[in-house]
Design a binder for these strands. Structure first.
Lengths: 234, 234
DNA sequence: AAGCAAAAAAGTGTCGACAATTTAAATTTG
DNA sequence: CAAATTTAAATTGTCGACACTTTTTTGCTT
């Protein structure tokens, strides 16, 4: 199976689960606008399910912080705030480092080889589309996802894949800010794999943290520029 | 308000939220046995709510990994595994360090003073009850909770308070394994506050991580001994 | 008596409806 | 005409009921 995130079987799975997946996707991709209010009857009609079924899905979305509910007032899609994005990157840095450290200890040689292969594919993908490739949008998550699997820490995977990545993906989709430095990122990924292969947990940890920190700082820079532009131009 | 975890207003809040809170508490305290199967009609009756309401709560419990659901087969309370506990400590170490680092940067002087005061109360509590105090059971979480609040990273607080702490508390309740070294722990807490007060983020991070690592190793030792005992005695 | 088959019981998945609350609209009043 | 109050519409909270699966019980066959 392609490393799709939060994949849910379309036929077997309970309706609630499918609705949950669809809603999550719609929110992340901005099809349901960030900050917009959610009407339960309307959404239920749109997806062709009962309100009860939909509400169960909403409960889970709330637990993942993708929507915010206030009693008797209904639910709103989270509104993206810069601060929260930075918070997320901070956590991702700490957990990414841990995951990578554990991966260096626990990944099998086969897994590492596959990881290498994945990066080769990414490189090809970048060369072909020259910037607008799948890699730009989602490919990076593939890499991190595999490393996490190699960490053998299931809860870690759940926290990152089930919560943090979603938020970051949401930003990328809605602000169209794919990684602005694909080759550099790829290089960093390769270095990380090297460290994992050498079973150098300490180094793997450090490199991964630095990798994520770089991404965060890039976001911070862009934000500063946006603010500056706003003050001079608009 | 006392630093109760996941506090839910008993009157105002929607029924679902209250049921969720009650169920979570019951699971953590072992009132609903770990590993036991959950009967929706039975539970609904017990708490005097409809099945729909209860199912919404179950969805959230599943999202928090406190129960596991399989389609058409129902829900089971998680069974406590040693591996998962260790996984949780690993994550807690990474995130605790981050939280402490941020706290050193962001906590106000007032908050730090209050933190100091809390530790004084803890010391008193330990002296009085000499081991069986509130501190042993829950007090440690108070400390970590406050530090997390000081980190100003809300998501971090949610992850730890809304997920990881719960699991650790569950183990403590059910295996009655309160911190076996209250004075040592208190001392470590004091050192951490010192570092925060000096705004030494690096050191605060390091000390917190070491503090949590010590707890983890203690768990690991106890587990090894238990295994050894089992092999020779049982 | 053991094993398989069919029927019954229990349980989960999903839905539609009613009650209570909030928001919007309409009417009254100063 | 604006502000306040009442009325109406829409929305959320909660429940009970029915269909479909899974599990258990029952009964038959070898």
């Amino acid at each position: 199976m392609a490393p799709t995130f939060n994949y849910i079987s379309p036929t077997t799975a309970p309706l609630t689960d499918r609705i949950f997946g669809l809603l999550q996707d719609a929110i992340i991709k901005g099809e349901i606008r960030a900050g917009s209010k959610i009407s339960e009857p309307e959404l239920a009609k749109t997806y062709g399910v009962s309100r009860g079924t939909l509400r169960e899905a909403l409960s889970r979305l709330e637990e993942r912080h993708l929507i915010i509910r206030s009693p008797n007032h209904g639910a709103r899609v989270i509104s993206l705030s810069y601060e929260e994005l930075i918070e997320t990157y901070q956590i991702r840095e700490a957990l990414g480092g841990l995951g990578c450290r554990l991966a260096a200890q626990n990944m099998t040689d086969e897994e590492i080889a596959e990881l290498r292969q994945l990066l080769d594919e990414h490189e090809k993908s970048i060369e072909e589309d020259n910037g607008l490739s799948y890699y730009q949008k989602e490919g990076e998550f593939d890499f991190h996802y595999r490393v996490l699997q190699g960490s053998r820490n299931n809860r870690l995977l759940t926290i990152l894949d089930g919560g943090l990545y979603q938020l970051i993906r949401m930003y990328r989709y809605q602000f169209s800010t794919a990684s602005p430095r694909p080759y550099q990122a790829l290089k960093e990924h390769r270095r990380i794999v090297d460290a994992i292969e050498e079973r150098d947990a300490e180094l793997a940890d450090l490199l991964m943290r630095r990798h994520i920190r770089t991404a965060r700082i890039s976001v911070e820079e862009r934000h500063k520029n946006a603010i500056a532009m706003e003050n001079s131009n608009g």
